[in-house]
Design a protein around this nucleic acid. Structure first.
Lengths: 339, 339
DNA sequence: GCGCATTCTGAAAGCGCTTTCTGATACCGT
DNA sequence: ACGGTATCAGAAAGCGCTTTCAGAATGCGC
């Protein structure tokens, strides 16, 4: 079933049928209706490939994230899909499972698909080779008219970005904990080669330093960026006998694991130790105790990054939108027990 | 940068370059290398549209689900992506946000994209018009060689399917609760027009009936399929003064909301009331108390439905794979308090 | 050293669509 | 009633690739 069939069945030329279905130009009303009727009658489905090839448009945007099944990315992806739907776009979603090489590979595939825009969601890697490879893909893509926007990347790329207030959020959280009276901290960290982690940690540390509180390196445990990573990190801290009154997990997902580990070791939150996370994924308010965290408007971030990628932008420079960073105090943090 | 440029730069014909890059036929070693070198030198990126148009392959599979940001779908989507990556496929993911019309629209878009396979994830709707529209899209797609596989649909569609043991799981859960000594039940239900809900409910009810236990309709509260829906449903039950000793939320996500509602109303789980869910999304084991539920291997379901869609299948009939259904007893359920 | 079978390469025909470009038709003023 | 200007339909040229089809080059046996 091709356009030609439709045209023939409607008794008009191929060009006219194309104009009607594409809405490209004015066509006399009666012809228009005949074409539409024919298309309907034959249940014609246009071939997106032929369209893209001839026209060079493409109704597809590509999204690359670390892992869709992680609530953080799932939340952002939800926002992206909503925005895409509003524009009649299709989304190609790829999970790299945190493998830099996969990310480059997907980028290249999305280029081959002539995606109208490419969104990179989630932390970049501190890795020179990866960075070079990414830029080698991105730069020609941009030059060929592709649009790129990112969430949570470092500034190496000169593209539009939605930037969570990682550093400021970390700092705000630290101040909030200091205000509660805490002086002994420990951090459950993800891989520090991820910019997101580095930023959150840096902000947290700086705010502590400003208050004259040290955060020695042995108070930072580095584990994978998952629930089990959080569990392992908290367990390790306990094993080491670290006597902190407040734990900061750099993501909520890790905090969930940490909470389980603390409970399993007979520590009560917040009576024995306070625990805070980062992201405000939906579930954390339903934990027991509900988790103090730094809020990020996940779905909105997805919508905004999509909007950035779609905006007309001939010549204007990269736009940065900062979001979130507000501390949400919940019962998982409390003043430290008087010794 | 087209294949022609590569061919010219390598000093071979277009056809030869195509054969080398497509791996379609044997090409003399030295020519092969020259083509590869030229492609690399020019950082050639093939045009997937031209490829699909000429060849009729397509490296893309389409996935339609209700909502990626829901942990249930996110988990399955994770499995799908993993399987897709293993086959070098790209995934177009669409969220319908539970709108049947959207589902049909996406199906049509994916057809236009000539997706190699289309996966429908999640409950179907009990809606004749929708069913007709879906079949009208699906049938020609299948006839044109497209592959379709589903997770959790009813049998109206004659396609490969991964079917969670909704009915059997509901029944098994009911029996487990009966074994604990419960006789007074209430159900926090999602829209019963969704086949998934209907099946879980039916299984649950049947098993109760077999034990001579009634589940009157006023013990079933129907709310939206979300955390807040669960909260609302539990609140409504409390408002009505229903004195059940065991609550069954038809999805874990609803159970999360229900747990919050119960706590907010001063009811302890499981001392005052037992609560069970369905799906075993990752978070529920970290709730307080950890939630009894019926396990579904989400990621595996994603991988299997992808495998079904990809298998060679000239002529063979639709294959059904049943998964999950095992009751996981956790502390959210306990014997009822002796009155 | 010749003929034939066997690879392998190149020319060319599409795949289904968009978009000039050209030509036909209708409409306006005078 | 006529030339000139808008409108609008149709023919045809690609978009970048795959894949026949036919022909060139190679290898083999005798």
């Amino acid at each position: 079933m091709t356009l030609e069939d439709v045209a023939r069945s409607a008794g008009v030329s191929l060009a006219t049928a194309s104009r009607v279905l594409g809405g490209t130009a004015r066509v006399r009303e009666d012809l228009r209706e005949r074409v539409l009727a024919a298309a309907d009658r034959l249940s014609y489905i246009p071939n997106a490939h032929a369209r893209a090839l001839a026209g060079s448009s493409s109704q597809v945007v590509g999204v690359i994230c670390h892992d869709v099944s992680d609530p953080y990315f799932a939340g952002i992806a939800g926002g992206v899909m909503r925005a895409a739907a509003a524009h009649g776009l299709l989304v190609m979603l790829a999970s790299t499972f945190r493998d830099p090489a996969q990310e480059v590979a997907y980028l290249s595939m999305l280029r081959a698909q002539r995606a109208r825009a490419i969104l990179l969601i989630g932390s970049g890697f501190e890795d020179r080779a990866w960075e070079r490879a990414m830029n080698a893909e991105l730069e020609p893509y941009l030059r060929s008219g592709g649009r790129v926007a990112v969430v949570s990347r470092h500034r190496a790329l000169k593209v539009d970005a939605v930037l969570p207030e990682n550093r400021a959020g970390g700092a705000a959280l630290a101040r909030a904990m200091l205000d509660l009276g805490h002086r002994d901290f420990a951090v459950l960290s993800g891989p520090r080669t991820l910019t997101t982690v580095a930023d959150r940690l840096a902000g947290f540390r700086e705010a502590l330093a400003e208050a004259g509180v040290e955060l020695p390196d042995d108070r930072i445990v580095e584990e994978s960026f998952t629930r089990d990573g959080g569990y392992a990190a908290a367990t390790e801290l306990i094993r080491r006998g670290v006597r902190a009154t407040c734990l900061f997990a750099v993501t909520d997902v890790m905090a969930v694991g940490a909470l389980a580990a603390l409970r399993d070791h007979g520590l009560r939150v917040p009576q024995d130790v306070s625990l805070a996370g980062f992201d405000d994924i939906p579930i954390v308010r339903d934990l027991t105790p509900p988790l103090t965290t730094v809020a990020l408007p996940l779905a909105e971030m997805g919508e905004r990054v999509m909007a950035l990628a779609l905006r007309e932008t001939r010549g204007s420079r990269a736009r940065i939108e900062r979001v979130g960073g507000e501390v949400i105090l919940r019962p998982s943090t409390a003043p430290p027990r008087r010794p």
